[in-house]
Design a protein around this nucleic acid. Structure first.
Length: 112
DNA sequence: AGCCTGACCTAGG
DNA sequence: TCCTAGGCCAGGC
């Protein structure tokens, strides 16, 4: 409810725009929001995403190398993987296969 | 009220 | 090319 919530909300809304079967990164979101060095906050926002009334597909956000660094925050270490696989994404060793092609960059996709 | 940590990333040595 | 440090700022203790 504070002003900084605005940043969090932007993160949530942007995250909701990620198409199923695609993934993006914390850094990409931070950069798109104009705070390229606030990627950590994006992760923190995801931590609070479960408290949001509207669903936030936080499982579609991974780190820069395509790794599922936040999988343990889904209430189970397999939840994130299962969500991704249910969308057709292949995950091996906590890493998104073909991440380069599945990467959804808001800078490119939204700033046409 | 202050210190520590954390789902990250980039730059500099 | 590997390693270190800095920046972001909300929450927990």
């Amino acid at each position: 409810m504070s002003k900084s919530n605005n940043f969090f909300e932007k993160v949530y809304e942007l995250t909701r725009l990620i198409p199923p079967g695609r993934v993006t990164t914390y850094g990409a979101i931070a950069r798109y929001l104009g705070s390229p060095q606030s990627s950590r906050m994006v992760g923190w926002a995801m931590n609070s995403s479960f408290t949001q009334v509207v669903f936030v597909p936080a499982h579609r956000v991974v780190n820069r190398m395509g790794m599922l660094t936040g999988k343990h925050h889904f209430g189970g270490s397999k939840i994130m993987v299962e969500l991704l696989e249910s969308e057709g994404i292949v995950v091996i060793n906590d890493e998104v296969v073909d991440f380069t092609n599945l990467f959804w960059d808001p800078m490119k996709e939204l700033a046409l």
